[in-house]
Amino acid sequence: MERYEEEMSWEERAARVHRERDPVYQVSTLQALVMGNFYGSAAIEHVLEHGDTGLGTFHAVAGELVVIDGHAYRILGDGRAVEAKPHDTTPFASVAYLTDRAYRIKLGRVPSLDVLRDVLDERVELLGVNNMYLVRIDGYFRRVAARTELSQQEPFLPFAEVLKTDERRFAFEEVAGSLVCFYFPPYLDGVNTPGWHFHFIDAVRQHGGHVFGLCMEHGIVRMQKSDRFIMDLPHNDAFQDARLENASKDDIRQIEQGE
């Protein structure tokens, strides 16, 4: 039987609040990634201790990262997904636990990514624009336009330069799968992408990527609000010496939207 709060000690109440406010956990900052800090600073097995759903990339930006159902997947240059090894590392990732407290929304046809953003933004307006949100959408997609990147060699170039030569794009047609999405409020611009960031993986966990376009026939949204944030900063020299405030907002927009 659940105990009434007044019967609990201060320590027990604090522990309960902590459990019920699962944080977003992040490795490094988007600014560092944009500027070319591709050095893996956290092992995948460590990242999975902090969340079962999320996204990011790998050391040397060797493929997009999709975390779903407690498993981490690397998206290869041809769009294939392979499960990451525990000792693989990431220079940038965001994860959280998707719990049964998540809001559920049933969606019909969504013709574009912009329309999906609008639908999700309406919910954010109702729930609070200054929180973070983790979203998973399971559905059937007419089309998903996605990308990944090829592994880089030192000296690392800025991410926007990498995309000019080593971005790989592909489209998936008539596919069941899941979108993993994060929303970060505008005041965290640079720490992460302001607004929405979407990754995709199909239902059989064989293909995926960073999403910059879609048409969804129907889907079920699970949307979880978070008001706690934990960030692990890298200890490498590239991070210690970087002037992160100089990261280009245009580059961030290009990287996210695929323009």
Rank of each mutant, 00 (worst) to 15 (best):
T165W: 14
T165R: 15
E167L: 13
R168L: 03
R168D: 05
R168W: 02
R168P: 08
R169V: 11
F170K: 07
A171S: 15
F172T: 09
F172D: 08
F172V: 13
E173C: 05
E173S: 14
E173L: 12
V175D: 03
A176D: 15
A176C: 06
A176P: 09
G177A: 13
G177P: 08
L179D: 02
V180G: 00
C181I: 15
C181T: 13
C181D: 05
F182N: 03
F182V: 11
Y183Q: 02
Y183S: 03
Y183P: 01
F184E: 07
P186N: 01
P186G: 00
P186W: 02
Y187A: 00
Y187G: 00
Y187P: 00
L188Q: 08
L188P: 01
D189Q: 12
D189R: 14
D189H: 09
G190T: 09
G190H: 08
V191T: 13
V191M: 08
V191Y: 09
V191F: 12
V191D: 04
T193V: 15
G195N: 08
G195H: 07
G195F: 06
W196V: 04
W196F: 14
H197N: 12
H197Q: 11
F198D: 05
F200Q: 06
F200A: 06
D202N: 15
D202H: 06
D202M: 12
A203W: 07
A203M: 05
V204F: 10
V204D: 14
R205N: 04
R205T: 02
Q206A: 15
Q206C: 11
G208E: 00
G209S: 09
G209N: 12
G209L: 07
G209Q: 10
H210M: 09
V211E: 05
F212V: 03
F212K: 02
F212D: 09
F212Y: 14
G213V: 10
L214N: 02
M216G: 04
M216A: 06
E217S: 08
E217T: 08
E217L: 11
H218P: 00
H218L: 08
G219D: 02
G219H: 05
I220F: 06
I220M: 11
M223I: 12
M223D: 03
M223W: 08
Q224W: 04
Q224L: 13
S226I: 10
D227E: 15
D227P: 01
D227C: 07
D227V: 06
R228V: 04
F229D: 04
D232G: 01
L233I: 13
L233P: 08
L233Y: 15
P234G: 01
N236A: 10
N236T: 13
N236E: 11
D237Q: 14
F239P: 06
Q240C: 13
Q240P: 02
Q240M: 15
A242H: 09
A242E: 13
A242F: 08
R243D: 14
R243C: 09
L244H: 04
L244Q: 06
L244T: 04
E245F: 13
E245P: 03
N246P: 04
A247M: 08
S248R: 02
K249G: 00
D250N: 14
D251C: 02
I252Y: 01
I252N: 00
I252R: 08
R253L: 09
R253E: 07
I255G: 01
I255E: 00
E256V: 14
E256W: 07
E256R: 14
Q257C: 02
